[in-house]
């Protein structure tokens, strides 16, 4: 997939780039409004990561311009401002999602994939990972064609790990993905362990291989080794 990262903070841009290209994606960069303007006029992207505060302009103006020239690229807004008004404005202008800084790269990637899925594979929302088959629209999980019943949170967790397959996901990222950031349960990081154990058990009970790997107490990885 091909992405455009419009972000003025260089180190953040680099990290995002690194994370995405490691998965075989291609990333273009724009540090300013002007650069972003030029790039999205010429090229087509699967998804544009758009920071709203750029040194020479407003990210929302780029979004307006994109819609004006009738481009259908997916847009994920990345903003430091957690304001409902701005979120609503961004989404009503045609952005697909809104992510608030700071975020975890795994979260970012999961969201990007969700956007691309919605935009490109119209109707076809099935994800395959070896013997696992996930229907994101119907929220159904099948192992070797047999349905596995997962709770909503377990389903979200599995989808999150599969979206970031072969990547290590920190416990912090997993907790935030499931409970959001308003839970204020900072002392409950270890708690994600129980949750993953449940998903693991349900999957292996249905004859699935155990793809979850623990990484020394810092996180987990979903990979076929």
């Amino acid at each position: 997939m091909k992405f455009l990262i419009v972000e003025d903070e260089e180190s953040l841009r680099k990290s995002i780039d690194q994370y995405l290209t490691a998965e075989g994606n291609i990333c273009d960069h724009a540090a300013t409004y002007e650069q972003g303007y030029q790039k999205l006029s010429i090229y087509d992207y699967d998804c544009i990561l758009l920071d709203l505060t750029l040194p020479d302009g407003e990210g929302l103006q780029l979004l307006k311009y994109l819609k004006k020239i009738n481009k259908t690229d997916g847009v994920l807004i990345i903003s430091a401002r957690n304001s409902l008004d701005q979120k609503i404005e961004g989404l009503s202008l045609g952005a697909d999602d809104y992510l608030i800084k700071p975020f975890h790269l795994s979260e970012l990637y999961a969201r990007i994939q969700s956007i691309v899925r919605r935009r490109h594979f119209n109707g076809n929302t099935i994800i395959h990972f070896n013997e696992i088959e996930i229907d994101t629209a119907a929220k159904e999980t099948k192992v070797n064609g047999k349905t596995v019943y997962l709770t909503r949170k377990e389903f979200d967790l599995l989808l999150y790990f599969i979206a970031n397959k072969n990547k290590v996901i920190s416990k912090a990222a997993a907790v935030e993905h499931i409970w959001g950031d308003d839970a204020d349960m900072a002392d409950s990081f270890d708690f994600i362990y129980t949750h993953i154990k449940n998903v693991r058990k349900k999957l292996t009970d249905s004859g699935c291989k155990d793809y979850f790997q623990s990484v020394y107490g810092v996180g987990y990885k979903f990979a076929d080794v």
Binding site: E9, L12, S15, A80, K101, P102, L105, V168, S170
Partner: peptide
């Protein structure tokens, strides 16, 4: 607000480090 972007950088760098195979 100003702290959010550096925090995002720290977070992303941690995420990048976490992917290292030599951990």
């Amino acid at each position: 607000h100003e702290m959010m972007t550096p925090l995002a950088v720290i977070n992303s760098k941690l995420d990048t480090m976490l992917q290292s195979n030599t951990l």
